[in-house]
């Protein structure tokens, strides 16, 4: 089953076209890396999936539910707010800037949404949250505030927080770009582990090594379009497009 089906997505910020008719399908358990220069629209594409941006044209289907359909005028039409929220919290998201809640301890960051949104009982979610913290290696930080954590630790908490909602899909928006180089490893390790558990993942990244090693498919975007996609081997070793080659050279 396809977890994500995008058809002909168009998106403009005022007169600037950032997505020019993107179509993409992601299968269950697939790890897809999206690479490309800044301003290519890769983050915007990710943010359109869970309504952080709204699209102008095209359709979005998450698992077997339509989030956006095409209206009679050809413009995109979103389902009701309530419905859209239910569809979207099947997707967890990890941000470049972590966006942890600074007024809550690590454990409270993780249990807040499951309690508030899903109505899960506190004594049920706390052991689950602790298990997630162990998984990302941060159980001892359970009662710390985010300001006491390093960037890499914050991002691992953010991953645990997203997982606590039991998403079927995880979206990563440049998860290591705000980190010092020596801290990216611990975050990538947590992501690699998720991939091994067959989580469906869409990762916007500048970590070429990670894309090459973990992704099953690599998508190269430029100027709001998918220029080329294929297996990591194909994209990194023998890209068909000159633009892909130029970009990859600039990343070395």
């Amino acid at each position: 089953m396809n977890m994500i089906s995008l058809k002909n997505i168009h998106k403009s910020f005022n007169s600037l076209k950032v997505l020019k008719g993107i179509s993409l399908e992601v299968a269950q358990g697939e790890v897809v890396a999206i690479i490309g220069p800044s301003g290519s629209g890769k983050s915007t594409l990710l943010r359109c999936l869970n309504r952080l941006e709204t699209i102008d044209q095209g359709t979005i289907k998450i698992e077997d539910e339509m989030l956006v359909t095409e209206g009679i005028d050809g413009r995109s039409q979103y389902v009701s707010e309530q419905k859209a929220r239910e569809i979207c919290f099947k997707m967890g998201m990890v941000f470049q800037q972590f966006n942890l809640f600074p007024h809550m301890t690590v454990i409270d960051n993780i249990i807040e949404a499951p309690i508030l949104v899903k109505g899960i009982k506190k004594d049920v979610i706390i052991p689950e949250a602790e298990e997630l913290l162990r998984k990302v290696g941060l159980f001892e930080k359970r009662d710390s505030y985010p300001s006491r954590l390093s960037g890499g630790q914050k991002q691992r908490v953010a991953i645990a927080r997203a997982l606590a909602m039991k998403p079927d899909i995880m979206l990563f928006d440049e998860p290591t770009s705000a980190l010092d180089p020596e801290l990216t490893g611990e975050v990538l390790k947590a992501m690699r582990q998720l991939a091994q558990e067959h989580m469906t993942m869409l990762v916007v990244t500048h970590e070429m090594a990670f894309a090459r090693e973990v992704a099953q498919r690599v998508i190269f975007m430029d100027y709001g379009d998918i220029v080329e996609e294929g297996t990591p081997e194909q994209i990194f070793n023998s890209p068909n497009q000159a633009r892909t080659q130029t970009f990859l050279n600039s990343m070395l």
Binding site: R85, F89, F101
Partner: peptide, 11 residues
């Protein structure tokens, strides 16, 4: 980002 994180978590 605080609003975005909340929205993504379904709030």
């Amino acid at each position: 980002g605080q609003y975005e994180a909340s929205k993504v978590l379904g709030m």
